[in-house]
């Protein structure tokens, strides 16, 4: 980003797309997180989830993609997320971000990020600190 945005700036929404069961299988293999709630429908039903759910960390990875649309990786100082609701295959994810705080003295920009589904339900929130 050439010009550093001010507090309150709203970034354009970043569309990820529809999460599929195949995405969960691929993420399980890539991350090594084989908790069956993500890849075994029967197990996930028995666990009371009504079917498989996405890894929270896949949603966080999507929020990371959003960050890198606007800032270089080397500027990223911290990235903390909280998982709010389960994402099921078939849901469509979009990432929203705003500048929460601009600390020009210490050179830190704090962003608030949210992953939402097509109905506007918040799946995860995150805060990232960027060195400016």
């Amino acid at each position: 980003m050439n010009k550093i945005p001010e507090a309150g700036f709203i970034f354009p929404a970043y569309t990820i797309g529809t999460v599929t069961q195949m995405d969960l299988v691929r993420y399980a293999g890539a991350s090594g997180d084989f908790n069956p709630i993500h890849n075994d429908t029967e197990y996930a039903r028995e666990a009371g989830l009504g079917g498989t759910i996405a890894h929270g960390m896949l949603i966080k990875a999507y929020m990371g993609r959003f960050l890198l649309q606007h800032f270089p990786l080397s500027a990223l100082s911290s990235f903390s997320s909280k998982f709010k609701a389960m994402t099921k295959p078939g849901e469509t994810i979009e990432i929203h971000g705003t500048v929460k705080k601009k600390d020009a003295v210490n050179g830190i920009l704090t962003l608030s990020i949210e992953a939402r589904n097509q109905a506007g339900e918040t799946k995860a929130t995150a805060e990232a600190e960027i060195r400016i």
């Binding site: 960390m57 966080k60 990223l76 911290s78 990235f79 903390s80 997320s81 909280k82 998982f83």
Partner: peptide, 11 residues
């Protein structure tokens, strides 16, 4: 029954 609540990274 565990669920992932938070993940915080410092680089």
């Amino acid at each position: 029954r565990l669920l992932h609540l938070k993940e915080e990274y410092t680089y």
